[in-house]
Structure formats: C-alpha cells, structure tokens
Design a protein around this nucleic acid. Structure first.
Lengths: 363, 363
DNA sequence: TTGAAAGCGCTAACAC
DNA sequence: GTGTTAGCGCTTTCAA
C-alpha cells in the first residue's frame, strides 16, 4: 500500500457516463442494458456489460430512485428488537422483502411515541415505498399523515380499524388460555400485563380474559388485574415480585396467572421461584406469544402461539399489493390463535388436596 | 371520505420549488432555511418556514443525498436476527446510529456467503456511508471491494486482521470457561460447536479451549471436539443428541462440555435432560455469549459474557470516526471477557464419589 | 441577504 | 437500435 499518497483523493465512483464513454455508446444505451430494458443489439449489450465491469460501474440507487420517483425500500418500525417475538417477525419480514427485491430500513422506537414519529418522518423523507409497523402508538393522526404522504402502511400484530393490518385474534387467544385454566378448575385467575404490550393489544387480551371468566360464570375481579410498568427483561423485578406476592396472599388468593406476553410470563416463573411458589403446583402460569424460550423443557410454558411465519407472510403480501397500487378497501386479516399446553399449568392445589379453609370457609 | 374520486390521481409531493413559490423567495433561500445554513433574514426565514408547513413540505432525502454525494445511511449486516446476541447488538447499534442522526438499513444473510455478497452490493448501490458487519464470511476480496467503493466498514464480533474491528478476546474467553471447568476437577471436557458460530470465531474459541487444557497439563483429545451443522434453535436436535450420547459413553467419557455459544449450550441442557443426564451432576455445561435466557434461574448457565453495550458503543464510535474521514491505520479493539459462573457447572461426579473404575484403572 | 445557474447520476420519452 | 433531451429535487458556487 505504498502507492497511494497520503490523504488519497477519493475519486468519485464511475457513473453511467463513464461506461458510455468506455463502450463508445450513449448514456441511454447503457441505461437500457443496465435496466435490461431490451431493444439493444446483443453485440452492443455485451460491449456495454464489458465496459461496465471494466470501469467497475455500480448503479446509483439514489439517482435511480430520484428520477423514478419511487424507491424499492421498505421501512420496518419495531418497538424493541430484543423482544424475540419482534426480532423474529422483523427477520421474517426482511427475508420476504429481500426476496421481492426490496431493501429494508429498520427503526426501533423503544415504545416511545415521540421516537415513533421521528422514525416515521425519517422513513418518509427517504421516500420509502411502504412501511410495516410492528409497533404503533395508536395515534390516529399518524395514519393520516402516512396516508397523505402516499406511502403504503401495514400494521402487523396491531389491530387498527382504520388501516390495513394482520393480527392474531388476541381476544380469542386470551380466551383460549383462560378457558384452559378454568377447565383445570381455577376460579381465581389473575391477569398480569406490562408495558411490553401495546395498550390496544392489552385491552383485547384483557377482554378475552374476561370473556372466558364470564362464560364460566365467574365474575372478573378487578383485584386480580394488574398492569405493570416496563419490567426488567427476563429478569426478576421488584414490582413483579410484590404484585405476585399480593395476588397469592389475597383473602381469596389467585391460583393461576395469565400473563399478557411470554416475556412477562417467564418473569413470573422466575419470580415464583424466588417466592418459593412451585409452578404449577402452587401457581399455574400461562403466557402469550410462544417465543422460543417458552418451548424449552426447563421453562415449558403454556401459551398462546403467535404464528410468526403466517403473520410475516400475510403482512408482506398485503404490503406488496398496496405498493403495487392495489386500491381496495382496508383489509383486516385476523388469524386464529392456538393454545400450546405445556407444564406450567395444572389443576389448582385446593381441588387436589382440600384444606381446612375449604371445610370452614371464612377461617 | 367521499370527496376523492375513484383512483385519485396521486399528486406528487410538494418540493422546494413549491415552498419557494408560496413564500415568494428563490429555491436557494428555501434550501438555506431548511438546512439551517444561516445567512437568511429572520423575517424571510419565518416566512419560508410558514410556507413549508403550509404546503406540507417534506425534504427529499434522495435528492439531497444525490447532490451531496453522500448519504446518512448506514448498513448493518447480520447473520441471524433471531439469535438474541445479534438482535441485541443490532438494536443497540441502531439506537446509537439514530442518535447520531443516521438511518439504518438492516440486512440478514442467514449465514450464506452469497446472500452476504448480494446484500453488500445492495448497500453499496444505496451508497451507504458505512457498514457494520455482525456477520462476515471472511472472504478477503469482499473487504477490498468495500474499500474500493469508499465505504467505511467495521466488523463487530468478528476478528479480521485487515479491517477495523471490535471483538471480544474470544480465545481468552474460551480459556476462562475451560479453566473454570478444569479448576472444578474436570479432565474430560468436550468442545461443541455449530454453524451458528462463524469459522473464524470458532477457531479462536477452540484455541482457547486447547490453551486451557494444555496449561493444565491435559492433552486435547480430538475425540472430544465436535462441530455440528446448524442445529434447531433452542430445541432438541437429533444430531446433538447423538453427539452428546457419544461423548458421555466414550471409554473415558466426557464429564463437561464447553459449547461455543449459548444457544447451543441451552440446546445441550435440553438434550441432556432427554438423555436423563442431570446437569451439572452428570455433565457440566458452559457456554459463550451470556444471552438473556442464560441468566434465568431455570437455565442458570455458566457462560462467557459478551459485553454487548461496549461492543456496540465502540463499534459505532469507530465507524462514525471513519465515516467522518479519520484516516489512521486499521484498528482492532479487543475487549476483555468475563466469566459468569452459574449453576450449570460443578465438580465432576467421579471426583465426588470414587468408583470402582478409579480403584482398578483400566477395568 | 438573496437569486440565478449548474449540476448530482439516472430514466424515459422522443427523435433519428 | 441508438442518441438526444429534458428533467427528478436538491445543494452550492457565484453574482447581484
């Protein structure tokens, strides 16, 4: 590396003009062969290709996109990439987009609506062809802004009346999980949620929880419903500990908890351990999402499965259609949830070994 | 929504010209205001800003980047976003880039060198200012290509003589883990790896493994070294089962395994369970990475910690310097590893309860 | 302090 | 088949 002088003048990269000159043709001819536009004599084509290789030509996507007035870039907005459910979805989406010849810009919002706005603005300035939102603050005006910018938007995992979206039937999913607990004999089932779950989604899951209870003739008890702040990830958390402590020492204690997502459910497992509560013996735990860890033998969490593959496939499919100009009415795709029963749920203790308290109620 | 006719003609978005017209100034003045270039009378400035808001102006990053001949976009190349270690790093990197005002394009390669080439090419066509590679096939010519394209590149987590990189001292990390096992009394320690780990990295970790053995006077036994194909993620896998089965039924069986990454180590935990091997009683297990799951009470894996925060911080710092034109020689930043000792490792069984075989060697 | 003009690298009519 | 031309929306001299 002795040749290049110090502070080497960085020559700008070869352009279509350089190729044209080298091949002895015009810019448009080069453009035609680069874009495989056809209408170019085979001999010329080869000459151009050779020249391009020769000068080390690499098309400039910026220039192309500018003049075409549309890009082949799609934005993915995600709340938190370290939540396995989102990294999985993001990965699958990127794969599909890539296969369709589109580039992906990923932005994370950390759940902050302000950051969400900023990231969206950035994507719009880059004139992305479409946006896939795995996280959405729910701000209605945001949707309007995106729409007026002419970008296609699909919400994944996030229900919204006024937008294209593909989601699991959250309410039904929660109902499935809670009905399972009821079926096992639980009557005191807590609902535990955290900021990891969007409010919109949280409400749906809570509704499903109540549905299940009511249809079993159990009146939902507000004392059993808790929404925590953002708890430490997969790590025991004081807020969670006191919440669970409270639930199990209620006059009529909870015997099961339905956590609104797996990350939280796993935290519950951890915390139960600390509190010397055996799962499922003393406490049944069910979650939502079916992230990879939940399937581990040592975790073995009963949970509602998110069909990530399906979600990503349908979401991207819909987005691509919209980008291609499909005009139809908004589409809401609702996927059927399924319950994966594992070892974290079982019959409640009291129905197995009647205690004094059962014989003398109120003791 | 009855106003817009069917198949509404999508007006193109307002440009700097529209703003200029609305404000009664020239394009350049608008440009000066937008870019906060100064040298504009306060009154004019406000008039322009008002006009911009009025027409709904949004700068076109493509045009800007084209004429400036550089973008504010950085590419992140990642192998597999569903490996928590990578999603974590990607997330942190994106955060830092975003804070520095840069947009992020994420590409995943699924570990395929060909896809890696394609993705890099795409990034170059988009004229990214820099590339952060969390995955690198190790192809030397790739580096040359990137360099000649004038892009700054930093490898994160991947050692490479001929490039800027920031990595953990892999060799030392492995040595730490294996020395810990040796210290517990193990002499038959297996090394288990999979395609989840890049060859380059794998070699370093293997070397550290051998270092530790040798400095304890133990000659590495090739019979104890296994590299598997890409195993199922966090899920038991037949290849792994037979590998472990073999290791523990060797004439002189393995009493511990050092897995070259946590995902694999957790798989080992699972598989051990299936094989009715108690960990750490029958088999000690150590990993590498310290992903979130490893810290769960129910997993409690002894492992070498990757300081993700540090890695991301230093990697982005270095990349930004290069993008800003820093010319110095290649820099290799080597971080010191640390071992997190948890419950998956302990004294080997035989040293606790001497068996007949120990009394009559060769029996 | 402001404006006119010359592109950035490319595409897409439209002539030849 | 191939070349000419007129921009895409913006930045950035350079004059005024």
């Amino acid at each position: 590396m002795t040749s290049a002088g110090p502070r080497e003048q960085r020559r700008s990269e070869p352009t279509i003009r350089d190729v044209a000159r080298a091949a002895g043709v015009s810019k448009s001819t080069v453009s035609n062969v680069i874009r495989s536009a056809g209408g170019v004599a085979e001999a010329t084509r080869e000459r151009v290709l050779a020249a391009a290789a020769d000068v080390g030509y690499r098309p400039n996507a910026l220039a192309r996109n500018l003049v075409r007035r549309r890009t082949t870039t799609v934005g993915i907005v995600v709340g938190d990439l370290s939540n396995p459910i989102f990294s999985e979805l993001a990965k699958l989406a990127e794969q599909r987009l890539s296969r369709a010849g589109l580039a992906t810009m990923i932005c994370s919002t950390d759940g902050s609506p302000q950051r969400e706005q900023e990231k969206l603005e950035m994507l719009l300035e880059h004139r992305v062809a479409g946006i896939l939102m795995l996280q959405f603050s729910g701000e209605r005006s945001t949707l309007a802004r995106l729409r007026s910018a002419g970008t296609s938007v699909v919400l994944l995992t996030q229900w919204e009346e006024d937008a294209d979206c593909v989601v699991l039937d959250e309410r039904r999913g929660a109902e499935l999980a809670v009905s399972h607990l009821v079926g096992l004999g639980h009557t005191r089932i807590a609902y535990l949620s955290s900021e990891l779950v969007e409010l919109q989604t949280d409400s749906a899951r809570l509704a499903g929880y109540e549905d299940a209870l009511r249809s079993a003739g159990i009146e939902p008890d507000p004392d059993l419903v808790t929404r925590l702040g953002h708890p430490a990830y997969l790590r025991s958390d004081p807020g969670l500990r006191s919440a669970i402590g409270r639930l199990v020492s209620l006059p009529d204690p909870a015997t099961a908890v339905f956590a609104s997502n797996d990350l939280l459910a796993v935290d519950v497992l951890e915390t139960a351990e600390e509190l010397r509560l055996a799962v499922p013996r003393d406490l049944s735990v069910a979650g939502f999402d079916d992230i990879q860890v939940s399937g581990l033998t040592r975790i073995s969490l009963t949970t509602v499965a998110q069909p990530c593959g399906e979600l990503a496939r349908l979401g991207i499919e819909l987005l691509l259609e919209r980008i291609d100009g499909a005009q139809g009415p908004r589409r809401q795709l609702l996927l059927e949830p399924s319950l994966v029963v594992r070892d974290s749920t079982s019959t409640p203790l009291r129905s197995r070994e009647p205690e004094v308290a059962d014989v003398f109620p109120g003791a």
